[in-house]
Amino acid sequence: MAFILQPEEYNIIKGDLDVFLNNSEARTVMLCDRGGNVIADSGEEVTGAVDLVTALVAGAYAATKELAMVLGEDEFNAIFHQGDQTSIFMSSIGEEVLLLAVFSDETNAGLVKMYATSTCRKIHSLVDEVMTRSEVSISDPTQSFVITKGNVFQFEDGS
């Protein structure tokens, strides 16, 4: 099974993330699946570290879910980490997707949380639709995948 995002769906999600950034004054917003794969991101670039941030967020979220279960909750569906200058807010969207907002002390957590909650609600139905549809294979013959020849990876010494 795969999570397949068509360009029009990506553009809708990206548009919603842009609106969120504008309203909340957060620096960066990312959407990832619970395995840590990046779905979309917007705002200031986290130089060379988007993959790492989403991997850690997925890990942190999963660990916190276990903690919630020990305490008798299904999960904590919103998590907030506060730093001196940079803070993050994480929220779940359905069963498979997480939203992460990175923001500075120029805005405030309440504003970010409020707009994040409404953005999650907006994106939720689209994400659900994509997930349901992804269980069928691609029927468009122009969208076939071709593996390039040779080894997938090579080391620097040419081995």
Binding site: M1, A2, F3, I4, L5, Q6, P7, Y10, N11, K14, D33, R34, G35, G36, N37, V38, I39, A40, E66, M69, D74, E95, E96, M131, Q143, F145
Partner: peptide, 25 residues
């Protein structure tokens, strides 16, 4: 985690046609 823990259905490769990107884990 208890065996009733909802890990969810396995969910694999992520294909983003807009960014022409495929991710595997």
């Amino acid at each position: 985690a208890s065996s009733s823990c909802d890990i969810g259905q396995s969910f694999m490769a992520l294909v983003n046609y807009a960014k022409k990107e495929i991710q595997f884990k």
